[in-house]
C-alpha cells in the first residue's frame, strides 16, 4: 500500500512524542523528580533515556566526567599565611610540549646569584589559542598544571590569562578530579616515604 512507509515513520515520531509523557508519569508515580535533579539528568544521559532528551542548561547541567577538560589552570597550595604557593617550578616542559605554543613562562632568577629559582615569575596562557589538548597537564612532572572543568568563561574581550588568573587552589583541583588527585597524592606520599627510607638507610652509613 502506498503511504505505508510514511505511516510507519510517523508511528516512530508519535512513539517518541508519547514516550516523554509516559516517562513523566512513571517518574511521578514513583514519586521522583525528573527535572532539575541530578538523578533525572543522569537518567536522561543513560541508555534508558526515552522521550525528552533536553538538559536545560543553565538550570540543569550535564554531569561532567572526571576527565573532562576545558582550559588549563595552575594549581597552588595554600601557604601558612594565605600565601599562594604555586606548585609550578617553571621547568618549561608544558611550554615545550604545547602544540600551538600558547604558553609563555618567565623563570624567576635569584637577583643576587642570577641562578634560576624554581618558581615562575610570569606565566601566560593565551586562551584564545589554546586547543584544549591537555598535553600540558599530561606531561607536567609536578602536577602543577591541570585542566579545568569550568567552561563558563566567555568574555567581551580577548583572553590572555596571566599568573594571577590562572592560579586555583589545590582544594579546587581535589574537588573536580578526586580520583586523580588522590592517586597523585598517594604516589607523592609513597615517593616521599621511599626517599625518607633511603635517607634513613644512607644516614647511618654516612655517620
Amino acid at each position: 500500500m502506498y503511504g505505508k512507509g510514511i505511516l510507519k515513520g510517523l508511528g516512530v515520531t508519535l512513539k517518541r512524542f508519547t514516550d516523554t509523557y509516559l516517562e513523566d508519569i512513571s517518574w511521578w508515580l514513583r514519586g521522583k523528580k525528573r527535572y532539575y535533579t541530578e538523578e533525572g539528568v543522569a537518567h536522561r544521559s543513560s541508555k534508558n533515556t526515552r522521550g525528552i532528551f533536553t538538559v536545560q542548561y543553565p538550570e540543569e547541567q550535564l554531569i561532567q566526567p572526571e576527565e573532562f577538560r576545558y582550559v588549563p589552570f595552575l594549581v597552588y597550595e595554600e601557604g601558612a599565611d594565605g600565601k599562594k604557593e604555586p606548585r609550578c617550578t617553571s621547568c618549561g616542559i608544558c611550554a615545550k610540549v604545547c602544540p600551538p605554543q600558547c604558553i609563555w613562562i618567565v623563570r624567576t632568577n635569584n637577583p643576587q646569584t642570577g641562578k634560576p629559582v624554581p618558581e615562575p615569575a610570569e606565566f601566560y596562557i593565551d586562551m584564545d589559542i589554546c586547543m584544549n589538548c591537555g598535553f600540558c597537564a599530561e606531561y607536567c612532572p609536578f602536577d602543577a598544571i591541570k585542566m579545568d572543568h569550568d567552561f563558563d568563561i566567555a568574555s567581551y574581550g580577548r583572553n590572555v590569562y596571566n599568573l594571577e588568573k590562572l592560579l586555583k587552589p589545590a582544594s579546587y583541583y581535589a574537588e573536580i578530579r578526586p580520583l586523580n588527585y588522590n592517586r597523585e597524592e598517594e604516589a607523592r606520599k609513597a615517593k616521599e616515604a621511599a626517599k625518607a627510607a633511603k635517607a634513613d638507610a644512607a644516614a647511618p652509613a654516612a655517620s
Binding site: 617553571s90 611550554a95 604558553i103 609563555w104 613562562i105 618567565v106 610570569e122 601566560y124 593565551d126
Partner: peptide, 8 residues
C-alpha cells in the same frame, strides 16, 4: 621565545 624568558 616561550621559555625561560617568555614575555608574552
Amino acid at each position: 621565545s616561550r621559555w625561560p624568558d617568555g614575555k608574552h
